[in-house]
Design a binder for these strands. Structure first.
Length: 640
RNA sequence: GGCCCCGUAGCCUAGCUCGGAUAGGGUGCAGGCCUUCGGAGCCUGUGGCGUGGGUUCAAAUCCCACCGGGGCCGCCA
């Protein structure tokens, strides 16, 4: 997973280049590349930037790192008026000390320009597919993790200048939709429940109850098979009903997603994929290219299999080839998924029709695939170089097969990334509170849609909203209701997203409701609070003109400047592995440094020159923080 | 049986790709900071790399083995 396509033109790179020039004048380091050897010293007295290059050179030069560093520093020449003022050797490291008036001036000017931190990339066309929740239920917090990660990746890639198409795949033909169709058509469930959000009604009530009834009345499973067959064939009342039903659930899910600030470009319906005959197209190509074969005998007799045994990563497996078509001629999920991936990457003709589904609250149009005519004029959605598919880790093997198939079919031209993430489970405490009777010896309980063991995203969002509302009211007793509600909503959404993003995708989140409702410490409100403090200072300052050049700097100011300087690096790290943690940590550190600065360096009451400089610094820090928060989908607030 | 992921203080978590300075946060607990730009804050203390080997001048990081937890393994999605 990851992209390596950026070139950065930031001030940081300029400083690193100057450091390299300085050291190149020392004989011992002539022609040595410093690329990737820079780091931030652990303590300010060790300088503002360091290189560990002497360590890697030690064995080659048969000298200790300390000797090399000392010699290099004695021979190095610092240019007058440059960005670096002084070079010192210490413990094998070469430490650089900034010429602060110049660095601060250039940095503040750069950070105040819109788009600070944006890397220069070769723009790519990318499809990010995420969420993809079966349209028979409300999103639970595991689905929300998927959406938050996918949305982060989309925001990041767009920030970097890529052309991003965000898709949400809607499986309206699977067993889960069939289950609720059985409920409505054969078990007499009413078509709505007063006062209950439709997706919640379908998932919490109908789906769970229908599944309970399967064990009591096994003949119901026969009904489901009938329903699924009709849905699969299409062009009948049951199929039409199922599609309309799925659409209603989807609209309800979208309310939650939009509330979370997650938006899409395209909805891709499985029933439309069937009707567009993507699989038939793909199967012809697979056969023509000799990628598949028909099994004449063996365990998979009568099936069509994808050849994988020649690939090293599959060759060790007992049965490396993957069954794509059952012996009865029907297609399996990996087959469909390969066809769909081929469509994404432009390896199949685009046989979909499209129409506008909705205008989203952010003003952007949401398109959908559709049956029949569709709009003649529509954006081009497929034919991307890169697709990023956010799907939980349990499907890793199947995704590996799809990626391998695409690799073969495109001869390595197209890149299919499975963005895997671990599931969200429930803490024992929370499960017990919800009345789930699970194995008490386990430290956590896996969620289960069929059994009704889950926490809905709506439920958590609402709990966060109430908590935030209460806290905001406490702090703003005289504020208008509109302000309180708007602020609480921004806090709730931000807190939700940050909880999902601050943990590495390959760690399971054991969700605990009480823990999740805390709004102190390393949480979104902490970041938002630092932002409002900046806003508060700037608001109070009245009219002022910027001052970029400091006369002297206190340590908290330097620390803040150093961290602002590092923003492009945080963005690059995130782009490298697509993980939000880099931006989360960056934003948290920036907020901490702002709070320390706030404590130790008075702005408004400072003497005039310092006042102007500090105001400029606060503004730059605020801009940088807002930029990082935007990437995470956290709402930067002016007051809270 | 094969394969994949995780294991860092009481609890949660960063650092592991690319080995280097005293392992960074949060929470909890103990204490301190309100005549100073907003206390969702700041400061001090407390406590940690699953185990055993190996490679290296140097290992949380790389290699091997083991232990513990989770997941996936051809006609489900």
């Amino acid at each position: 997973m990851g992209l390596r396509l950026w070139i950065s033109m930031s001030l940081l790179r300029k400083i690193e280049a100057e450091a390299a020039t300085i050291l190149s004048r020392a004989g011992i380091l002539r022609d040595v590349s410093l690329e990737g050897t820079f780091e931030v010293p652990p303590r300010p007295e060790l300088g503002d930037l360091a290189t560990k290059v002497c360590f890697t050179l030690a064995s080659k030069l048969r000298k200790s790192p300390a000797e090399i560093a000392a010699q290099a520093c004695s021979e190095a020449e610092v240019a007058e008026g440059g960005l670096i003022e002084r070079v010192e050797a210490k413990g094998g490291y070469i430490n650089f000390y900034f010429n602060w008036p110049r660095v601060a001036e250039e940095l503040l000017k750069e950070a105040l320009k819109p788009g600070y931190g944006k890397p220069v990339v070769k723009p790519m066309r990318v499809m990010v597919e995420h969420t993809s929740v079966n349209p028979n239920k409300a999103l639970h917090i595991g689905h929300a993790r998927n959406a938050c990660l996918g949305d982060f990746v989309s925001r990041l890639l767009r920030f970097a200048g890529h052309e991003v198409i965000v898709a949400n795949y809607i499986d309206d033909t699977g067993t889960q939709v069939a289950d609720i169709v059985v409920g409505f058509l054969h078990l007499g469930f009413p078509l709505e429940k007063e006062g209950v959000k439709f997706d919640q009604y379908c998932g919490d009530d109908v789906y769970v109850r229908v599944n309970r009834m399967y064990s009591e009345k096994p003949e119901l499973l026969e009904k489901r098979r009938e329903v699924m067959k009709l849905i699969d064939e299409g062009g009948n009342d049951v199929a039409d009903f199922a599609r309309k039903l799925a659409e209603r659930v989807l609209r309800s899910q979208l309310q939650t997603l939009w509330r979370l600030g997650v938006y899409y470009d395209l909805l891709n319906w499985e029933s439309d994929i069937l009707r567009a005959k993507l699989w038939e197209q793909a199967f012809r190509k697979l056969k023509a290219g000799g990628y598949v074969y028909y099994a004449e005998d063996g365990k998979a007799k009568g099936c069509w299999l994808l050849k994988l045994s020649h690939l090293p990563e599959f060759s060790k497996l007992e049965s490396p080839d993957e069954i794509l078509v059952r012996s009865d001629g029907t297609v399996l999920y990996p087959g469909k998924d390969i066809a769909y991936a081929m469509w994404k990457h432009g390896l199949l003709e685009d046989t979909f029709s499209y129409k506008i589904f909705s205008r989203q609250p952010n003003g952007k149009l949401l398109w959908t695939t559709t049956v029949g005519e569709g709009d003649r004029e529509h954006p081009k959605f497929n034919d991307v170089e890169l697709s990023i598919n956010v799907i939980d880790v349990r499907q890793s093997y199947e995704q590996k097969v799809v990626a391998a198939a695409l690799q073969m079919l495109s001869r390595g031209e197209k890149k299919y990334i499975h963005y895997a993430y671990e599931v969200v489970s429930l803490s024992r405490r929370t499960a017990r509170k919800m009345g789930i009777e699970a194995d008490e010896s386990r430290q956590f309980i896996h969620m289960s849609g069929r059994r009704g063991w889950y926490v809905n995203a709506d439920t958590l969002l609402e709990a966060l909203y109430q908590k935030a509302l209460e806290e905001t009211r406490k702090r703003n007793p005289d504020a208008s209701r509109e302000f309180l509600e708007k602020t609480a909503e921004a806090i709730a959404v931000s807190a939700f997203r940050y909880e999902m993003l601050k943990v590495s995708p390959d760690k399971m989140i054991v969700f605990d409701l009480d823990e999740a409702l805390k709004l102190e410490g390393n949480t979104a409100p902490y970041l938002q609070y630092a932002h409002t403090r900046c806003a508060g200072i700037l608001r109070k300052a009245g009219d002022w003109s910027p001052e970029y050049k400091p006369r002297s700097l206190k340590e908290p100011e330097k620390a803040l400047l150093r961290h602002i300087l590092m923003y492009p690096k945080a963005v690059e790290s995130a782009l490298r592995d697509l993980r939000p943690i880099h931006i989360c940590s960056y934003a948290h550190k920036l907020a901490t440094l702002l709070n320390e600065f706030y404590q130790k360096c008075p702005v408004i009451k400072a003497e005039e020159h310092t006042r102007s400089f500090r105001l400029t610094l606060v503004k730059a820090a605020k801009c940088t923080l807002a930029s990082a928060l935007d990437l995470l989908g956290i709402v930067p607030l002016e007051r809270m």
